[in-house]
Amino acid sequence: MELAEGALRRRRRRQDLLFFRLCTAPALLLTLLVGIAPLALMLVQSFIDQDSEAWTARYYVDSFTSSFFTRTLMTTLAMAAGVAACAIVIGLPMAYLLARRSWARNLLMPVITVPRMLPFVVVGYAMILLLAPMTGVLNKLLVDWGILAAPLFILFDWPGQALAFGYSAIVVAIGILTGVLMAVDPQLEDAAVSLGASRLRGFFTVTLPLGMPGVIAAGALIFTAVTTAYSIPVMLAGRVPYMISIVVATNLLTLEQPHLAYAQAVVVSVIAVAATAFAQIVLSRYGRQ
């Protein structure tokens, strides 16, 4: 009798689990088919020789021994880190203002939000209209006002790309930092000021450390987004590719070296996932404090 009851109860629990597992099954299945499987396949193929179909690590070796690849990877990472750092520094005061003053939020929120709703292509178009050497508005104004003798040729070079990345990055940084700083109790900073700190000192000793999770999250997000951006680097490409995504895409589409492209894609995703994971680890450390 007791045994039968126990069995019945266990069966009930199993049926419950089965029901809820069925609820999650479609999501899991689709993710496996359209997310996990392709990524795994790509990883496997990056270790298989394209012609002989034998196992090989040569695509990784080739990539890292090619000075072209490593140089481009380095410029990409430098670009990503630089853009992330600058965007956070530039966006921080604005985020602080938005977090502390509701009038500023109500007034400026569209300016911060709408750019995030735009395809990068539109941002690229806007950058061309603004900075193009002959026709760009900024160049024309500066020349007309006599500030510049000749138009600046920065658009189709790394400064142009950096400005275009920076545009989106600043918007992202402001959005995330505002959210995090809003969660920091303003009374803490007031307390620091009442204890004799200046407003600026109060910000740097109290508010900023508490807002650090936002800085890290924004940094990681911008870093990975820039590392793997494709539209801006192509639209504003100079003679020498600065960004790794172009190298990968060229190998894949033009040079018909898909397995080499897979290996390089794996390298890029390891970097991107590592940045995200690093941010997560630091964030959870913060969470525990």
Binding site: A27, T31, G35, I36, L39, T224, T228, S245, A272, V273
Partner: peptide, 18 residues
């Protein structure tokens, strides 16, 4: 399920192509 969102879109796009 969150993994496809952590892997950069560019990479997922290439993987999907294969």
């Amino acid at each position: 399920v969150l993994l496809p969102d952590i892997v950069p879109q560019l990479i997922l796009g290439i993987a999907l192509l294969t």
